[in-house]
Write a protein that binds this DNA or RNA. Structure first.
Length: 773
DNA sequence: GCCGCTACTTAGTATTCGGATC
DNA sequence: GATCCGAATACTAAGTAGCGGC
């Protein structure tokens, strides 16, 4: 790294004025500027909403970092509340002319700049592989590319294949073949069941009965299936009017509502205890849509939502739900059986000669839209979906699902280039909703497998890519620099790509490419660190991302440049969007998109953490704790948060009580052991000898139980506000976990529950203990 | 190159289930 | 048998990304 680029940076990029911004981005700008004031207010509200969560999130991140003994504990997450408040104040102040707090002195890019992959990146756990190859030899890489197939062994026989015409078909075919070439797995013949652990028999049964689609060849003509038959969706039950004694009051007076108006009112009443119904936006949207369902008489009478009293309705529903809980065993069993019958009838389809489980076979019932975060459409009426709204997708030669009597489907089509069975357009955003197969299905599993293979290919070339974007930081072209810095963030911080969103249609959330000036702050010096970037924005689901990261000087200088002459509401990367970025990534590696980095970094982190944290000698519970910690490291990297369970404090207390009791029991048993030893010393007889042995074993057993409880408590505490599920299900190559389980003889069901074992059956079957991501 | 549309994955929360405990 | 509570499952919103048309 040479030091002469700092000045050149600003010269080269003096063209980086806001008026140079991309056309498509300009379009939004003016509007945004106008909205900015409003936004600020909203932001404030949002932040205060998420503050409690963020605070403990930080606490947890800190804890995690400390635990992982990161080499540099410098990443400050502002643990103290006071600091939080200060920050809030700062945010309230208008971001003034510069977002750079204090001008950076001209310094040489020298030893101050950290070695990139040793730098403390906030999820402190993230460390990078140093080498493309070598460090992570993949023993399977050189094995046969093709899947093994034994047609006699498996019942799968493709039905009549509808051929695809023209160029598209050829193109698709080519793509598919290319994918096949990329694949570098040779599935192993059979999972060793002996290590399946405690319920080994059950696990064995599970695998034996399952169709091993991963041992068969994939279709190469671009079609997703050859034959598809299903029974269609389960529609929402019709509205049942309230009994006469349940009343609605307006302005203190009883008002009988028409059925359509009453139905919408019940949606609101059912949510009365929820915070949603106190939100102005929610009430406004609800009221507007409710009026559309009212008769003209109702419309003239009901003019103010604040005069509406839904309490009796709400009480009625609460009583009903209570009554459901109080039902007799028989009644409950009846309901269960009926549900099971519906599941059996509608919950499965036949796809290419195999019965497959459907993921969601029920049409979403009507209700009030519950957007996440500060959603402008919250409270709007989600209307009832009728058969006339529904498109059915199935084979021409299958038995088509029948619509309810007297109705018809919107359309029945036979498109085997898609995986969905049923679709409809919802009225809130106008987006299409689908009924698709369960994650355990072939069609989902193959895609999942492919996803991890792409991530593994990234592993092979990530060093080249990193070198490239580092080089691009120095580019003469602004767009190249922006692209390179954005990619650095995506790689280093596992940020999402950040597609553009239509304003006013959804909550104001961002990802990497859509970051705005107001979302970052630059600190040339902070505490003992240089070139610190502070990120503070709302990401997917309006989950706050807050982080501070020291970056290399060149990144810092570039960021300063990107911020020049911009307003807080302007795009940080005004020459970049996800489409541009992904096009670039595609050129670097076939199939590479921004989200592959998240998969790659998550999986590689798990693998590294497992290597680091697992001690061969520790007990099974300790190993499980290590696994969960590795999983947690990934969840933190990906910013997967959850609201602390409502019962958290109580459940921790309960566990602590158990621990205390166990400790008492332990010391009592130890005393008994001591007594037994003394007695044995005196008498030297067999009976006393036996007693010593018995007590010794008891002490040992209680010690183990205590340790297990302590592990559980630690795990639970560390997990308070971190959601492990999302990363486990979507980002972590299951073969890493499977290999780990097999290597250390940990029962599979301690890591994956039944559903997860079904989803990852392919990985459980094919990965051996030597698997390397 | 932009835009709208479509298909699919990823996400957090609400509800239900089922085993442990009283 | 009732109650409690954590785990599993259901639900559906909110992302990513590709494609085709203009």
């Amino acid at each position: 790294m040479s030091g002469d680029h700092g000045e050149r940076d600003s010269q080269v990029n003096s063209g980086s004025r806001a008026n140079d911004a991309h056309k498509h981005k300009d379009k939004h700008k003016e509007h945004r500027r106008k909205e900015h004031k409003k936004d600020k207010e909203r932001e404030k509200a949002k932040h205060s909403n998420s503050e409690h969560r963020e605070h403990s999130e930080k606490k947890h991140r800190d804890k995690e970092k400390e635990r992982l003994k990161h080499s540099d504990g410098s990443v400050d997450r502002h643990r103290e509340k006071q600091k939080e408040k200060d920050k809030e104040k700062r945010r309230e102040e208008k971001v003034k002319s510069s977002h750079v707090e204090g001008k950076p002195k001209k310094e040489k890019e020298n030893g101050h700049a950290r070695e990139m992959w040793n730098s403390p990146s906030p999820p402190a756990i993230k460390s990078e592989p140093e080498e493309d190859n070598g460090l992570y030899p993949s023993p399977k890489h050189n094995k046969t590319l093709k899947r093994e197939r034994d047609e006699e062994e498996f019942e799968y026989k493709p039905q009549k294949i509808k051929t695809e015409n023209g160029k598209k078909a050829k193109k698709r075919k080519q793509e598919y073949e290319d994918e096949e070439e990329e694949e570098d797995i040779k599935p192993k013949k059979k999972t060793k069941d002996k290590k399946a652990g405690a319920d080994g028999k059950k696990a064995k049964k599970e695998t034996e009965e399952k169709w091993k689609w991963w041992e068969e060849e994939r279709s190469t003509d671009g079609s997703k299936w050859k034959f598809l038959e299903h029974k269609g969706p389960v529609l929402a039950p019709p509205y049942e009017p309230l009994p006469g004694h349940v009343r609605f009051f307006y302005d203190g007076k009883h008002l009988r509502l028409s059925a359509p108006a009453e139905e919408v009112a019940t949606f609101f009443a059912k949510m009365l205890d929820h915070e949603y119904t106190t939100k102005e936006m929610f009430r406004k949207n609800f009221y507007k849509d409710w009026r559309k369902e009212m008769t003209s008489e109702e419309k003239s009478k009901i003019t103010d939502i604040n005069k509406c009293n839904f309490t009796e309705m709400s009480e009625y529903f609460k009583a009903q739900s209570e009554a459901r809980k109080q039902m007799s065993k028989d009644e409950k069993l009846k309901i269960k059986e009926e549900n099971e019958r519906i599941l059996q009838e509608y919950g499965f389809c036949v796809m290419d000669n195999h019965k497959e489980r459907i993921g969601n076979f029920r049409i979403e019932p009507p209700g009030l839209f519950r957007g996440r975060g500060d959603h402008p459409k919250m409270g709007m009426l989600k209307r009832r979906i009728r058969p006339e709204d529904i498109i059915i997708n199935c084979s021409k030669d299958s038995k088509h699902p029948k619509p309810p009597q007297g109705t018809r489907w919107k359309e029945v089509r036979h498109d085997n280039k898609v995986t969905w069975l049923v679709s409809w357009t919802e009225n809130i955003q106008g987006s299409i909703k689908y009924i698709m197969l369960n994650p355990s299905s072939r069609i989902k599993g193959e895609k999942d497998w492919q996803k991890y293979e792409t991530a593994r290919r990234l592993k092979k070339c990530v060093d080249r890519l990193r070198a490239q974007y580092r080089e691009d930081w120095k580019s003469k072209e602004m767009r190249v620099r922006q692209r390179a810095v954005a990619l650095y963030f995506i790689d280093k911080l596992a940020l999402r790509a950040g597609n553009e969103k239509e304003e006013g249609e959804t909550a104001d959330t961002v990802g990497c490419c859509s970051l705005r000036v107001e979302h970052i702050k630059l600190y040339p010096k902070m505490d003992d660190q240089e070139y610190v970037v502070e990120f503070d924005f709302l990401g997917k689901d309006s989950i706050r991302y807050y982080n501070k990261m020291p970056v290399e000087k060149r990144v810092f200088k570039n960021l300063q440049l990107f911020l020049e002459n911009k307003q807080p509401e302007d795009d940080l990367f005004d020459r970049l969007n996800t489409s541009i970025l992904n096009k670039h990534l595609q050129e670097l590696m076939d199939g590479l998109t921004a989200k592959v980095f998240r998969t790659y970094n998550a999986s590689i982190t798990l693998q590294q953490q497992l290597k680091e944290l697992t001690s061969p000698d520790e007990s099974i519970p300790a190993k499980i704790l290590s696994y969960n910690r590795a999983n947690r490291a990934v969840a933190i990297l990906c910013n997967h948060q959850r609201a602390a369970p409502k019962t958290f404090e109580k459940s921790m207390q309960n566990l602590q009580t158990k621990i205390d009791e166990k400790q008492k029991q332990l010391s009592a048993t130890r005393k008994q052991l001591k007594g037994a030893k003394t007695e044995h010393k005196a008498s030297h007889d067999d009976r006393s000898k036996k007693m010593v042995e018995v007590k010794r074993k008891a002490v040992q057993r209680i010690e183990e139980q205590l340790m297990k409880l302590q592990m559980q408590a630690t795990d639970r505490e560390e997990n308070k506000q971190i959601a492990l599920g999302t990363s486990k299900l979507n980002y972590l190559d299951p073969r890493i976990s499977v290999a780990w389980v097999k290597k250390w003889d940990v029962p599979m069901e301690k890591i994956y529950n039944k559903t997860q074992r079904e989803k990852f059956a392919w990985a459980i079957d094919m990965a051996e203990e030597d698997y390397e991501f």
